[in-house]
Design a binder for these strands. Structure first.
Lengths: 305, 305
DNA sequence: ACGGACCAATCGGTAAAACCGATAAAATAG
DNA sequence: CTATTTTATCGGTTTTACCGATTGGTCCGT
């Protein structure tokens, strides 16, 4: 059975006759007759009362007509949905982000994109950088806001820098080294509290190399798996730390945030995705974020609150 | 787009590859390739990621796959429903009856048939004989329990006698002519109350011809459009009447029901339908009623209650 | 990095089908 | 009863679905 059979049958029912259906479908009457006959033969059922009075379907024909109409409508709808999907009007996007890197601007972006593309279902969750890379590669994630990609993912995934974040030194407010701007070498002898390397390897390594450029290897006395604990430890006097400046909006009362004098001492936040499984909704989203890059940077304005 | 395209596409998705799908469908790989290409070209959409890594659908393909699967399942279900309909397992029957002729046995018949064929929807309503004939001819009724068919319907419709009902004379209980059995000629000088001829022409005419055989034309002093009123009028002393004996179960207190001595003085209740629009559920129903004809006759047992 | 294995696209040829035009048979309308 | 309409049927034609073989490409193991 093919959709053609259903189309012909519905036309015959609609136009109440083989001839009129043939005219409407722009085919010959014998073509209709053949196809209806094939349909009936294949189903082993009589759909149309022939050789009797005017024209009518059998009760079985009436029942099948309902189904046939629905199937044809469904097929049309399916094609339409596929086309809309290809245009990016419908679909789904799974988005991941770093709590400490992207939560300041992402909610606004999501909200506006949702209004622009109401048919696209967005799911958002927090994931660590390595988790994001893995999920993007496996296809369980569509786009991630994360730190710069590392091998082996860097080759297989694509990414774009959204903004470049200078580092801040975080010291207890009463610490003697607190300045409006300080050289990293002044902190060479301090104790350091850092986030575990697994949480964000790029961030960790960037801090180490920064200190290296300043001529020392930081003495790490404590690590934690969440930034909030790191800051709490600094506040408790365990040591000092370095953070990307976008994290200063979680300011804690008794901490001082001092810009570091190192033009190379920055870390990027990137938007990453897998080109291999690009979809139109994804492309739309990427383009949407690109268009808002300046606004996003503005929202991270370095003026301390 | 044809169902074949959907079948091939689903197979490709199921087997995750053109070659495996071709093997499963017992066609060549190139046939699959051609058809998928046609499908994509017609829809103007890419469904499958080619020339990239292992195998996967595009997001649009995923969406279309859901729809395609549903449509194919729907098509199978439609064919199955048509076949079951042709077997009489599903469908609908519109049944009409005479309140004064069939309501005694019909409820039981309906109930049992419903249990036997739970997929067949039964709708039952009361209709006058002429209404039934007209509705059967037009196709708005499937089967009727009515009086013998008259021209012009008798030729176009089919009917079977269910039972043959002798007449009873109905007289006021204190009427001098009340006997356990009486000759119609004894009632020649009585006043008659009858149902209007339009209500049941066959019944009316049968009464007239019965009286004719007894040698007189009944003097009709009143008519009514419902039997209950006729009986009420008899009770009120307006006259006497003749009714089919199956109506005696609506016995009224102050009336006497006397068998009439006329072996030809009977009226049939028939089951009527249109052969032109026969359906399997209808055939099943007709056969079911035929099988129960003796039981129905028994339920009309003439022993007065 | 190189060769073998697997996979999908492509091409010309073939066989099946859908389709057509004409005609016949049946039914209805006038 | 005739004229018209309607569907079934029958070759003939065209379309197209399908096949086999080949090519280009990707993925694997060595």
């Amino acid at each position: 059975m093919e959709l053609r059979h259903l189309r012909y049958f519905c036309a015959v029912a609609d136009w109440k006759g083989f001839n009129r259906a043939a005219t409407a479908l722009r085919v010959s009457q014998s073509a209709i007759s053949d196809q209806i006959f094939d349909l009936e033969r294949e189903m082993g059922v009589t759909l149309i009362n022939r050789s009797r009075q005017r024209f009518n379907l059998t009760p079985t024909g009436e029942i099948f007509l309902e189904d046939a109409r629905r199937i044809l409508a469904d097929a049309d709808r399916a094609v339409d949905r596929a086309r809309r999907s290809a245009r990016g009007d419908i679909g789904s996007l799974r988005i991941a982000f770093l709590v400490w890197g992207a939560s300041s601007f992402l909610p606004g972006v999501i909200r506006e994109f949702r209004q622009l593309h109401p048919g696209v279902h967005l799911s958002v969750r927090e994931m660590l950088p390595n988790e994001q890379s893995e999920a993007l590669t496996q296809g369980s994630l569509d786009v991630g806001f994360t730190r710069p990609l590392q091998p082996p993912y860097a080759g297989r995934l694509r990414s774009e820098i959204l903004y470049n974040d200078p580092f801040l030194a975080v010291l207890p407010r009463e610490h003697p080294r607190v300045r409006s701007s300080l050289d990293l070498r002044d902190l060479a002898n301090e104790s350091f509290v850092l986030c575990e390397r697994d949480i964000s390897p790029v961030l960790f390594d960037r801090i180490i190399s920064m200190c290296g450029r300043a001529g020392f290897a930081p003495r790490i006395v404590q690590t934690s798996n969440v930034f909030s604990s790191v800051l709490a430890l600094v506040e408790a006097g365990e040591g000092i730390t370095l953070i990307p400046s976008s994290l200063r909006h979680v300011r804690v009362s008794d901490l001082a945030f001092c810009p570091v004098n190192d033009p190379e001492g920055t870390i990027e936040l990137v938007m990453a995705w897998s080109e291999e499984r690009a979809s139109k909704p994804l492309e739309n989203f990427l383009e949407f974020v690109r268009d808002r890059r300046e606004i996003i940077r503005g929202s991270l304005d370095p003026s301390p609150r």
